[in-house]
Every structure is written in structure tokens, then in C-alpha cells.
């Protein structure tokens, strides 16, 4: 299984990763190697095998719907690269 330069560009777009044009063929080759490795899965017949999403076959635990957290905005925004008046700053989105 090999993957083309265009497919790498498409994946990079989906994953929001800027990749230098000169690095695209390198990624294509390396990703293809990984896909070759995982391609061994096709050697086995898995018809009627139920997919296993999780090690525990448990239902998700529910909790009462009540407030457990107070407002921690200041603490959280201490890690933000850019804030102003308690808001996160981003490049202009709407003209």
C-alpha cells in the first residue's frame, strides 16, 4: 500500500498541519512504509468478528447532572498565547 504526494497533502489539510512542499515526498514514503506494515491485517479473515473499541466491555458510567466546577477562566487563560479582556485572540474570521 503506497500513498501519493496528493494524498499526503489532503491528510495534512485534514489534520491542519503545514508541511513544506519539499517534505511531502519524504512523508509519502514514510507513511507508505507504515501502511505496508499495517497492511498485514488483510491476511486474516475477520468476517463476523465484532470490533473491540475498548479493553473493558462496560457501559459508560453516568453521573448526576449537577455543577461541579466553578469559573476557572483566569487560571485557564494563563496558558493562552494571546488574550484580551478575558477573551482568546484569533485572526479575524468574519469580515
Amino acid at each position: 500500500m503506497s500513498i501519493s504526494d496528493d494524498e499526503v497533502r489532503a491528510m495534512a489539510k485534514l489534520a491542519r498541519l503545514a508541511i513544506e512542499e519539499s517534505d511531502i515526498p519524504i512523508y509519502a514514503e514514510q507513511v507508505s512504509h507504515i501502511l505496508e506494515l499495517v497492511g498485514q491485517m488483510n491476511d486474516v479473515d475477520t468476517t463476523d468478528v465484532e470490533p473491540m473499541a475498548h479493553p473493558q466491555d462496560l457501559v459508560a458510567r453516568l453521573r448526576p447532572d449537577r455543577v461541579t466546577e466553578s469559573d476557572n477562566r483566569d487560571a485557564f487563560q494563563r496558558n493562552a498565547p494571546r488574550t484580551e479582556d478575558g477573551l482568546y485572540l484569533v485572526p479575524q474570521v468574519i469580515e
Binding site: 491528510m11 489534520a15 507513511v31 488483510n42 468478528v49 465484532e50 473491540m52
Partner: peptide
């Protein structure tokens, strides 16, 4: 991230992610 994105992308999910989950059960 690129490989994971590929495995989860439209058209490849069954061949990769679902298949891997079935093998996980085996």
C-alpha cells in the same frame, strides 16, 4: 497524526480502523 488521519478518513475507515478493532478482539 498523518497516518491516523488517513486511517480514520472517509473511505478508509473500514479497511483500517474497523479491521484493527476486529483484530483487537482476536
Amino acid at each position: 497524526i498523518l497516518v491516523g488521519t488517513y486511517a480514520l478518513s472517509s473511505g478508509y475507515y473500514d479497511a483500517y480502523y474497523r479491521k484493527a478493532q476486529q483484530i483487537r478482539r482476536l
